[in-house]
Computed example of a mutant assay.
Amino acid sequence: MVWTKEKILVNIEKLMRSKFAEPKEAFGYFDEDNDGFLIKSDFKKLLKEAKVSALIRGLVADFMLKSFDANGDGKVSWDEFQLAIKESGIKK
């Protein structure tokens, strides 16, 4: 299977729709240490649950972190996550 950006987004969208009522619920679930931020390991967990191949999970998690992290602090806040979800086209 070829993992394109679109395929990964479809898998993430399916996960969001099936498991969470709202994006805020997903954010809280994947924020394992409950500090209000997502880091690379949190994105890897999200990707694992979205059934993204283990071979590319680390690379995609790194890409997501860098893409979602608007202020460049190495972590993603709820506001950054919400903005990235809107921009990605993932539906609630």
Rank of each mutant, 00 (worst) to 15 (best):
E32C: 00
A61N: 07
F27P: 01
E25V: 08
K92V: 14
E32S: 13
D42I: 10
V52T: 12
D62W: 02
K7V: 13
N11R: 13
G89N: 12
Y29W: 02
K19G: 00
W78Y: 15
I56R: 07
S41T: 14
S53T: 13
D42A: 05
A21E: 15
I39M: 12
D35H: 03
W3Q: 04
W78E: 14
A61W: 01
N34S: 14
L59P: 01
S18R: 09
Q82H: 07
W3D: 11
K14P: 00
E25A: 07
A50F: 02
K51I: 04
I12H: 02
A61M: 04
E13V: 04
S41L: 13
F81A: 03
K45T: 13
P23G: 09
I39R: 15
A21S: 10
R57H: 08
K51F: 08
G74F: 11
S41H: 10
A50V: 07
K40E: 15
V60M: 06
L9V: 03
I90W: 00
K51R: 13
S53D: 15
W78N: 02
S88F: 08
F30K: 10
M16P: 00
G89A: 03
K66R: 15
F37G: 01
K75S: 09
E87H: 01
K66Q: 12
F68D: 05
D69W: 10
F20N: 09
E32G: 02
G28N: 15
K7R: 15
A70F: 06
D73C: 01
S88Q: 08
G72D: 08
S67K: 15
K91A: 11
K75N: 05
S88V: 11
D79M: 03
D69M: 04
K48F: 01
F43T: 13
A21L: 07
I39T: 14
L46H: 02
S18P: 00
F27K: 02
K24D: 10
F30C: 10
G72S: 03
N71A: 03
F81D: 12
G28Q: 15
V76N: 04
L15R: 12
V10G: 00
R57G: 05
V52K: 05
V10K: 11
E87Q: 14
G28C: 08
D42H: 05
K86M: 10
L83C: 04
K5I: 14
I12Y: 03
A70M: 06
K91D: 06
E32H: 04
K14Y: 04
K48L: 01
G58Y: 03
K40G: 03
V10Y: 01
F68V: 09
V76W: 06
E25I: 00
A84P: 05
L38F: 05
E32W: 00
L47A: 09
R17S: 12
G28A: 08
G72C: 05
E32D: 14
M64P: 00
D79N: 10
K40C: 06
L15S: 10
K7T: 12
K92I: 12
F81E: 08
F43S: 11
V60W: 08
A84K: 10
L38M: 11
